[in-house]
Design a binder for these strands. Structure first.
Lengths: 135, 135
DNA sequence: CTATATGCAAATAGTTTGCACGGAT
DNA sequence: ATCCGTGCAAACTATTTGCATATAG
């Protein structure tokens, strides 16, 4: 879906600021606030920090954007998408997405605890292929 | 291991402040900074906030304490222990630990990506048994 | 006794809010 | 014309640091 449509669908006006924020997230895949601020201030110098904060928060409320937290790292933002886990390279710090089935684990938890599982948040620390065998 | 021994092992002096912080974490299982501050200021009113920050950071560095982050929640601290996942009740907000085998998933990731998996961080949003069927 | 830890205050960083202006419908 | 969004400044919250004093080993 285009970013304009995405905004309209969520009853938000398609302002240049919002489009710029979404473009930046799309481009980065995963971006910290600092990343976003740096990239945006190059493309759009007048876009203020409070606008970034306000819009990220709004988009998170509306589930257009997800906030992802990692131990020992700043928080990251990403455009909301299919459920996936994060693979975080401990060497180059790159974050990849990975699709995985978690039904079996959820079933196991429900069976052993009596709880009802609703969702999950999963990340793996890895050394990525490229860092394992540099060209 | 006693907290005194734990501190000695990590080359930290066993001050009353540090013991108080560890006792609080032990007692709570999982505690936010706010929890810690509140509980501690009752038991040990002169223990300063900067001491809490300094010591938590030190203990995290030394892997005595882990910082756990959840979406839409404050950060939690816990005494480092065996690998486990967190089950977070979305109703009563309680956090339980759960032991789980993740080798199979790690193997699957390594096979499909070529990455080397080192560790993982996993949490499940649940409705806990007690909230499902109140007595 | 000596090195480390603490408390306090100040500095710094991160985030939110109020308000007047500007642009879109 | 009205409403919503933005930028700016100020407020507020969170975290770290410098330094003099206290204390564990």
């Amino acid at each position: 879906m285009s970013h304009i449509k995405l905004l309209k669908t969520n009853e938000l006006k398609a302002t240049p600021q919002r489009l710029c924020i979404l473009d930046t997230l799309r481009e980065c895949g995963h971006a910290t606030l600092e990343d976003i601020q740096k990239i945006i201030s190059a493309k759009f110098p007048t876009l203020s920090l409070s606008t970034i904060y306000r819009n990220l928060n709004e988009m998170i409320q509306k589930d257009m954007v997800s906030e992802v937290k990692f131990a020992n790292k700043k928080d990251y933002f990403e455009i909301a998408k299919e459920k996936h886990v994060h693979l975080v390279c401990q060497k180059c710090k790159k974050i990849e997405d990975f699709e995985i089935k978690t039904d079996e684990i959820s079933r196991q938890i429900e069976e052993q605890t009596g709880d009802k599982v609703l969702a999950n948040t999963i990340s793996f620390d890895v050394i990525c292929k490229d860092c394992l065998s540099p060209k």
